[in-house]
Amino acid sequence: MVLNVQLFLDTMAYASVLGLLSMSLTLTYIVSRVPNFAHATFAAIGSYMVLIVVWLLGIYKTGPSWGVYYASLPLSFIVVGAVALLQYLIVLRPLAKKGISIDGLMIATLGIDIILVGLLNISADFLEEIFQQSPDKDLRKLVTYPRSGYLSSYEPTIMGVTASSILGPLLLVVSTVGFYLFLTRTKFGTAMRAAIENPQLAETLGINVNLVYSISWFIAGGLAGIAGVIMVMTTKLNPTMGWLLIVSVFAGSIVGGLGSLFWGAVGGLLIGFLEQFGVYYTQIILGALTGETVSLGNYRQVFSLGAIVVMLLVAPQGLASLNWGKILSRLGLRR
């Protein structure tokens, strides 16, 4: 049992969801300097877009189809991006302008989170009502328990591997590389970097800082929405599904240092692997030492929360702040 291939594939899907979410959370943090507690609920909204796609495109009748992804990825990107933009424009920007402290803004995002979850619940009830009253037997099966359902049966497979295990990492790589190219190779990207790094100077150069910030929020929300599409393929659809992930997402961003998108993505991936492989191998090692079966699955959160605590105590600026050249040369890996 050196490497469990299936576990690796399952973990890829899960970890890339965390990577996407940690990266986009980092983006909102860089722009607004406030940790957004509603971020994982953004992903939950994205997941509900998949439900709507499965319903409206009749995929619940036809079974697994690529249509799930073709339709729900752009839809989630736009809808969740819009939600994030609204949060920025209606709540965070006006509050920041009034000089509310960061603590106040954090509490405001918690307030937004419970409002969003409440609204999601109401919408879920509403959708359920529609499904239940439908004469279509298959549609009535779509959501069988209050406000929850399982959509992973509708995703296609590639050579026997569920699409999310491949699509998830692919989307993460594409969005990280895409972001890098966007920031370094396009005019707007350059303007964006300028606006984030030195807003005052950017303003004097004629860059519309407000527009740049708004677009950043939109993109961050959109990425969270895409993460939600993959997320719903690995877990149960439920209005509070974001709350199950928020701790891990924060852990990813903190490990990445909250300062760089690339390291945010890496941090999220690492936490995903820590929660699955870290727990798995700790069990094997402890099992070999004690001679008994060791089960630590219920302490999963201790691993990610522990990562936050250790990281903040040891290197508050995250992995990004470590001098990798020095570490590598110390380890004799580089001269």
Binding site: M1, N4, Q6, L7, D10, T11, Y14, M231, T234, T235, M241, W243, L244, L245, E275, Q276, F277, V279, Y280, Q283, T293, S295, G297, N298, Y299, R300, Q301
Partner: peptide
Amino acid sequence: VEVIEYDPKNPNFAQQVAQLNDL
């Protein structure tokens, strides 16, 4: 009787099922 536990707030069962398979 071997027991594997999972957190009720668990979003993903990849690790637990892998351990189950091993046992």
